[in-house]
Simulated assay, not measured.
Amino acid sequence: MVIKGGVVHSESGVIGGDSPDFDTWLSQQLQFNEPHLDDDGFCERVMADLPPAPAKRSERRATRYQYAAVIAASAIVCWQFPLQEALAAMAEQSISLYSLVGLGILSSVVAMTGGIVAARR
C-alpha cells in the first residue's frame, strides 16, 4: 500500500477486500470533506411535504385485525374439518387423540404467529 495525497493506493492498482488496508481505504473514501451545497431550502420543502409517521394507535389497530384474522381462519378450518371421521379413524387405529389434536393445533398456531411476525417486519 502506498499513501499519496492522504489516500491509500494499492501497489498493484487494485484494492480488494482481502487487503489488510482495505478498511482504511474505504473509511477514507467514505469521509465527506466537501463544502455544504446550498439548495435554496429544497430539503426542508421535501421534508415538510412528507406524510406524517403513522400513529401508534393505527399500528395497534392493524395488529388487532391480524389477530382477528388468525382467529377467524382457525375457526373456519375447525368448522370445515371433518372432525367426526377423523375421531373415528383415530379410535380405530388407537392413536392418542389428545396428542394428535394438540400437535395439530400447536403447529397451526405457530405457523400463524410466524406469519404475523413476518408481516409486521
Results as ranks from 00 to 15, higher is better:
4 K>C: 03
4 K>A: 09
6 G>C: 03
7 V>A: 01
7 V>F: 00
8 V>M: 04
9 H>R: 11
9 H>T: 05
9 H>Q: 10
10 S>G: 12
12 S>K: 08
14 V>W: 02
14 V>P: 01
18 D>S: 14
19 S>H: 14
19 S>Q: 13
20 P>L: 01
20 P>H: 02
21 D>T: 10
25 W>T: 00
25 W>V: 10
26 L>D: 02
26 L>I: 01
26 L>F: 09
28 Q>F: 00
32 F>M: 09
33 N>K: 04
33 N>M: 02
37 L>P: 00
37 L>R: 09
39 D>N: 02
40 D>R: 09
44 E>Q: 15
45 R>T: 06
45 R>H: 06
46 V>A: 11
46 V>I: 15
48 A>R: 15
50 L>Y: 00
51 P>Q: 01
53 A>I: 11
55 A>I: 04
58 S>H: 01
58 S>Q: 05
58 S>C: 01
61 R>I: 13
64 R>A: 15
65 Y>W: 08
66 Q>A: 15
67 Y>S: 12
68 A>Y: 05
72 A>S: 14
75 A>L: 05
76 I>R: 14
80 Q>S: 13
81 F>C: 03
81 F>D: 03
82 P>R: 04
82 P>F: 03
82 P>I: 01
82 P>W: 03
87 L>M: 08
88 A>F: 06
89 A>D: 11
90 M>Q: 10
93 Q>P: 01
97 L>F: 03
97 L>I: 14
97 L>T: 08
99 S>T: 11
101 V>T: 07
104 G>P: 01
105 I>W: 04
106 L>F: 10
106 L>A: 14
107 S>R: 12
107 S>M: 09
112 M>P: 02
114 G>A: 05
118 A>T: 11
118 A>Q: 10
118 A>I: 04
118 A>R: 14
120 R>T: 11
